[in-house]
C-alpha cells in the first residue's frame, strides 16, 4: 500500500522539476497538489494525464482508491 510520501516521490521523480504536496487521511484516498513547469501550455486534461501516467493500470481505483489532483504552474 503506497504512502503519501511514496506518491509524492513518484510524482516528483516522474515529472522533472515538479513539486508535490500529497495528503491522505486513510492511506487509500489521496489528494495531490502539484506545481510543475511541465504543465505550462497543457490543458488540464493533459496535465492530469501526465500524473495518471505515473501509475500502473489498476493501481488507481485499486490500492489507491482515489487520487485527487490539483495542478499548477510555477
Amino acid at each position: 500500500m503506497p504512502s503519501a510520501d511514496e506518491i509524492r516521490q513518484r510524482i516528483e521523480t516522474g515529472i522533472p522539476g515538479a513539486s508535490a504536496e500529497v495528503q491522505t487521511d486513510d492511506e487509500v484516498h489521496f489528494s495531490a497538489r502539484i506545481t510543475a513547469e511541465a504543465f505550462a501550455g497543457l490543458s488540464r486534461v493533459q496535465q492530469h494525464r501526465l500524473v495518471y501516467d505515473l501509475f500502473g493500470e489498476g493501481e488507481l481505483g485499486g490500492p489507491i482508491h482515489a487520487l485527487s489532483i490539483k495542478t499548477e504552474t510555477p
Binding site: 488540464r44 486534461v45 492530469h48 494525464r49 488507481l60 481505483g61
Partner: peptide
C-alpha cells in the same frame, strides 16, 4: 483517462 467520473462536452473529454 483512468478514473470515473468522466465528463464529455461536444464529444471532447472535459475531465
Amino acid at each position: 483517462w483512468p478514473t470515473i467520473p468522466q465528463l464529455f462536452v461536444g464529444g471532447e473529454l472535459i475531465g
